Simulated scan of single mutants.
Amino acid sequence: MTSRMQVIWAMVAGLFLVACGAVPDDVRAPDQPGLARAIAALDPEVAPEEAQRVARIAYAYPLELRAAWNVTDGPLVHNTKVNQGRRPRGLCWHWADDLEARLRLEGLESLSLHRAIANHDNIRIEHSTVIVSAKGDAWDEGIVLDPWRYGGYLFWAPVLEDERYGWEERSRVFEIKAARTAAQ
């Protein structure tokens, strides 16, 4: 590869990494009341107080993790630091595990928590998240709570409206992977 091509590829890679670290203004400006309303609107049986608690924790707890894990870069750069042992945690499944565990401490009665994975079967980086739904509803009827995407700043959207990721139920992904391994 010529040095000119190397420079072009380096610039493209740099732009990609910068773009991965950009946090949109609407994500930096938390909409905790909007999330609480969206959770409460999942079903008439959802307790408004539970919806408010989940929204508060979903916004506040990832920011605590961000500070504890010294997240100073976009997710892909931070992932590299974690994988190199330069940061303690911060991979997507760390965020999902820790947020799910924290929310489970609330003893939710009108809401259910689910886990989902995107990109398990393609070249893009596999991604894990937490989903909240009304009690008894399917995971794909819920709302994605994704703190990894913007390094601790919460992204949320109804599962089927998340334009960036096509989510699949985590247990189903594990079944697919187990079957693939067994077939080898």
Rank of each mutant, 00 (worst) to 15 (best):
F155S: 14
Y150D: 02
R170N: 09
W156I: 07
I176P: 01
W167F: 10
Y150I: 02
L160R: 14
F155R: 14
P158V: 06
L154I: 10
Y165K: 13
G152P: 05
R170G: 00
R149Q: 12
G151I: 04
P158T: 07
K177M: 08
Y165G: 00
W156M: 07
Y150H: 07
A157E: 09
E161T: 13
E163N: 12
Y153F: 14
G166K: 02
D162Y: 06
E168V: 04
P158M: 04
L154D: 02
R180P: 00
W167L: 11
R149C: 06
E168G: 02
P158R: 15
F155Q: 14
D162M: 05
G152A: 08
R180S: 13
S171G: 06
E163I: 05
K177T: 02
G151R: 07
E169V: 09
G152M: 05
E168F: 08
R172L: 12
K177S: 03
L154S: 00
W156D: 11
E169F: 11
W156Q: 05
W156H: 15
L160N: 13
G152K: 10
D162C: 10
R180A: 09
E169L: 06
I176F: 09
G151S: 15
I176C: 06
D162P: 07
E169Y: 13
E168A: 08
L160C: 04
E168P: 01
P158C: 06
E175Q: 13
E169M: 09
E175G: 00
R172H: 11
R164C: 05
Y165H: 15
G151F: 11
I176E: 14
K177F: 04
E163A: 15
Y153R: 05
E163M: 07
F155D: 11
A178D: 10
V159N: 02
W156G: 05
A179M: 08
A178P: 01
G151L: 01
L154K: 02
F174S: 08
R172N: 02
D162H: 12
R180V: 03
K177N: 10
V173L: 05
R170A: 13
W167A: 08
Y165P: 00
R172E: 13
E161R: 15
A178G: 01
E161M: 15
F174K: 14
R172C: 03
W167N: 12
W167V: 06
R170K: 11
E175L: 11
Y150V: 03
G166V: 05
A157K: 10
R170T: 03
W167T: 09
R164W: 05
E168W: 08
R149I: 01
Y153L: 08
R180I: 02
V159F: 09
G152D: 08
V173H: 09
F155E: 13
Y153H: 15
D162S: 04
G166Y: 00
I176T: 11
W167G: 00
E175P: 03
A179K: 14
W167S: 03
E175K: 11
W167M: 05
K177W: 02
E169H: 01
A179W: 03
K177L: 15
E163L: 12
G152F: 01
Y153W: 15
D162F: 06
R149P: 05
